[in-house]
Simulated assay, not measured.
Amino acid sequence: MRDVAPDQDRHLPTTHASLAHGVPPAARATIFALSVAGGISVGPKEGRTLVFGRNRPEVHVCVGEDDPRVSRQHGVLTHTGERWWIRNTGRLPVRLPGGRLLFAEEEPVPLAEGYTPVFVRGSSGREHLLELFVTGADGGRPAARHRDATQQPVLWRLDDDERLVLVVLGQRYLLHEHRPQPLSWRQAADQLAELQPDAGWTPKRVEHAVTAIRTRMSRGGVPGLTREEVGEPVGNALNDNLIRELVLSTTLVPPDLEMLGDT
């Protein structure tokens, strides 16, 4: 295991509060890393490396020590170019915020300032949490903003036909089904034809309407809505990403299901 310099370094006990609540004041770009087995905080220095994984004697932060699905050395955190980076060295991917999976063969990913939860998948559906926190210019947690106005989500503008198409396409998400998927073009067109018999709905018309919405939202900054971003095979990924963005932004909400009547 690579040693870390003693200056600004501190071991975190198993009783340490979640890093989601913030960290004590520290030099800018200090990293805190914590699991249920404890953790460590170290100051920034070019080339510094912290190792996390199952083998407690050989890592700086022990993660999933009783779970053989977790690699003995599952990943590293390295300070280079004035930033901290995370790299996966284990057999299984680690999950980053936004559902991003980081595999062993991939390039390291930079960590943003503030709190980052990292999940290491284990046996029998278990997921082991590694909490990371990189301090910013203020050297600690963000300032409390109790009285600030709540920032509203971005609501995407939809006309009546677009909203109806999307509610039909994404109804399983609004119904909170387990692992929902969008309807197929044919399924959506058949249901739309029942709702609006004289509107001339066909699978191609549904596809063109949804593609236009995806294109508009992609230009508006929403990731994961183009084939170039997702890669082949695309499958349902584009429409899945679309519906999830619309639901998370509250552009589509469960009461919209009233548009479907009793069908």
Rank of each mutant, 00 (worst) to 15 (best):
Ala5Ser: 09
Arg10Phe: 10
Ala17Thr: 09
Ala20Val: 11
Ala20His: 11
Pro25Phe: 02
Ala27Glu: 06
Ala37Pro: 07
Gly39Met: 09
Ser41Phe: 04
Arg56Lys: 15
Val63Tyr: 00
Gly64Asn: 12
Asp66Gly: 10
Asp66Phe: 13
Asp67Pro: 03
Val70Met: 11
Gln73Cys: 12
Gln73Lys: 14
Val76Arg: 14
Trp85Gly: 03
Trp85Thr: 03
Arg87Tyr: 02
Glu105Trp: 14
Glu105Asn: 13
Pro108Leu: 01
Val109Asp: 11
Glu113Pro: 02
Gly114His: 03
Thr116Phe: 09
Thr116Lys: 04
Pro117Lys: 06
Ser123Leu: 12
Arg126Cys: 06
Leu129Glu: 00
Leu129Pro: 08
Glu131Ala: 01
Leu132Ala: 05
Phe133Pro: 01
Phe133Trp: 03
Gly139Tyr: 07
Arg141Val: 00
Arg141Ile: 06
Pro142Asp: 02
Ala143Trp: 08
Ala144Glu: 15
Asp148Leu: 12
Thr150Phe: 10
Gln152Trp: 12
Pro153Val: 08
Leu155Ala: 09
Trp156Gly: 10
Asp161Ile: 12
Arg163Gln: 15
Leu166Gln: 10
Leu166Ile: 04
Gly170Ile: 10
Arg172Gln: 14
Arg186Asp: 14
Leu192Trp: 00
Ala199Asp: 13
Ala199Phe: 05
Pro203Ala: 07
Ala209Arg: 15
Thr215Pro: 01
Glu228Thr: 15
Glu229Asn: 04
Val230Pro: 08
Pro233Lys: 10
Val234Arg: 00
Ala237Asn: 13
Leu242Phe: 10
Val247Asp: 07
Val247Ile: 13
Leu252Tyr: 02
Pro254Asp: 01
Asp256Pro: 06
Asp256Thr: 08
Met259Phe: 06
Met259Pro: 00
